[in-house]
Amino acid sequence: MNNEVKIKAKNVNFYYGNKQVLENIDLEFYQNRVSALIGPSGCGKSTFIRLFNRMNDLISNTRMEGKIYLDNIDINGKNVDVVKIRRLVGMVFQKPNPFPKTIYENVSYGLEVNGIKDKKSIEEKVIESLDRAALWREVKDRLHDSALGLSGGQQQRLCIARCLAVEPEVILFDEPCASLDPISTRSIEELILELKKYYTIVIVTHNMQQAARISDFTAFLYLGELIEFGPTEKLFTVPKEKTTEEYLTGKFG
C-alpha cells in the first residue's frame, strides 16, 4: 500500500500575539488514511489542524510562519482563495454545532452557498449525505424539524453530513467525540472508518484507545512540538521517543 501525500506542513510556527504555540512542525498526511493527532491539553492540536482550512485567519493578532501544502499548492499563497480551500477541507468541531435551522437546511446550506440552485439535485445530495453519515434512517421523518432537537450524537453526525454534502477532499475532526456518550462515539468511529475510503481524514483526539482503533498514522504533539510521527501500530507498541512512551503509559497529560 503506497501512501500519497495529501497535506504537508513544512516548518510551521504559530503565534497568538507573542506567545508561540507551534514550533517547527513538519508533517505529512496521506490520502485515504486516517491520521490522528494526540497530545496533552493545550499542546496546540486544535491550533494546528485549524491551519489546514485557514480557520485561524478569523482570530486577530495571530501569525504563522512556514508553509502548508494541499496537493502541493501553498494554501496561504497569494492567488489562493480561502473560500475554495475551505470547500476542499471540511471540518467537524469538538462541540456539535448545528445551525439553528431544520435538519434539511443544515445539510442544504453548504450546497446553497456553493452555488447549487437546482432543488432536485440539492435534495438528492442532502439524502445522500445524511445516508453516508449514518443518520438518514433516524431523521428521514423529521427532516423539517429543528436540528437543535437532535441528541448530541445525532447532532454531531448531522455536522458530518453537512460537511460531506459539499464534497470535500479532506475532513478535519477536532475531538469529534469529546462531548458524546460511548455509544455515539462508537457510531462516529465506525463512520470515520467508512469515510476513509473517500476522504483524507485528520482527527484530533484525547482518547488514545480511539486513536489506536481508527487511525493509520499517529502524530504526538507536546508543548507545540511534534515529538513523534509514524504508523499507529508502531507508535503505540514501540515508541521511539521517551516522552511518547511516558505519555502513552499515562505518566502525564
Binding site: N53, M55, L58, V83, K84, R86, R87, G90, M91, F93, K95, N97, P98, F99, P100, Y109, G110, E112, V113, N114, C159, R162, C163, V166
Partner: peptide, 27 residues
C-alpha cells in the same frame, strides 16, 4: 450569535458575506 455558527458556516466554504447574510443575521 455564537461564534461556532460563523466558524461552521465558513468551514463549509461559505464566503464571509454569505455567512453574514444567510447565517448570522437570520440568527
Amino acid at each position: 450569535v455564537p461564534q461556532s455558527y460563523r466558524e461552521a458556516s465558513l468551514a463549509l466554504g461559505a464566503t464571509h458575506w454569505q455567512t453574514t447574510k444567510k447565517m448570522v443575521v437570520p440568527a
